[in-house]
Write a protein that binds this DNA or RNA. Structure first.
Length: 185
DNA sequence: AGAGCGATTAGT
DNA sequence: CTAATCGCTCTG
């Protein structure tokens, strides 16, 4: 069952924990591609120096300032696409980066790492940025609560963010072999 | 208009 | 550890 907008209308940290065990689904021209999320990071507010929202509602980050339950997909290093879900409420820019998952069906590639996950599911900035996750093409589905324990650690590759880099806002399922960096940190 | 760099990845 | 590679943001 597809997750409702109320699922996303919470603080990013809560959503980042709640997405673990949920299925990310892309109906790719009739082909269903899906993976079970095992790792996610929270980006919270304009004051979060690690967030793309730190420069304000620029063209790239504008979607984060809007209502929850939309996809924020961007290109990094000119090669990898990364997908977030927008959380919280309109005017409070926050999002959850989907970093790793375990394949369920139709996956084209490794699902470990945010760029790999998008590639595996056929998700691209040009096609999917700004899509409503209540739509038919791209959404999260409910699933059984994960048996694994949830562990928190600092977010990956945000060393430029000063004290914000230390916040333990990366969540993953302990021991899951698809997590991008199994050792905390 | 141009410099500088990144929420990454694959390969050495 | 490093190159790849281009969109985004800032500066002037």
């Amino acid at each position: 069952m597809r997750l409702p907008r109320s699922f996303y209308a919470r603080e990013a940290r809560q959503v980042a924990k709640a997405v673990l065990g949920k299925a990310l689904v892309h109906l790719d021209a009739g082909v269903r591609r899906a993976a079970r999320i095992v790792e996610a990071e929270a980006y919270h507010g304009e004051e979060d120096e690690a967030s793309h929202a730190r420069f304000g509602p620029t063209r790239r980050a504008a979607i984060m300032f809007g209502p929850p339950g939309f996809a924020y997909v961007y290109l990094i290093y000119g090669r990898s696409h990364c997908m977030n879900v927008v959380t919280s409420r309109e005017g409070c820019p926050s999002a959850v980066l989907l970093r790793a998952a375990e394949p369920i069906e139709g996956c084209l590639h490794s699902t470990t790492g945010p760029g790999n996950l998008c590639r595996a599911l056929g998700i691209r900035r040009e096609a999917h940025n700004g899509l409503d996750l209540m739509g038919e093409e791209l959404f999260l589905e409910d699933g059984p609560a994960p048996a694994e324990r949830i562990v928190a650690s600092p977010r990956v590759n945000v060393g430029f963010a000063g004290r914000w880099a230390e916040k333990p806002w990366r969540y993953s399922l302990q021991g899951n072999r698809f997590v991008s960096r199994p050792w905390p940190g």
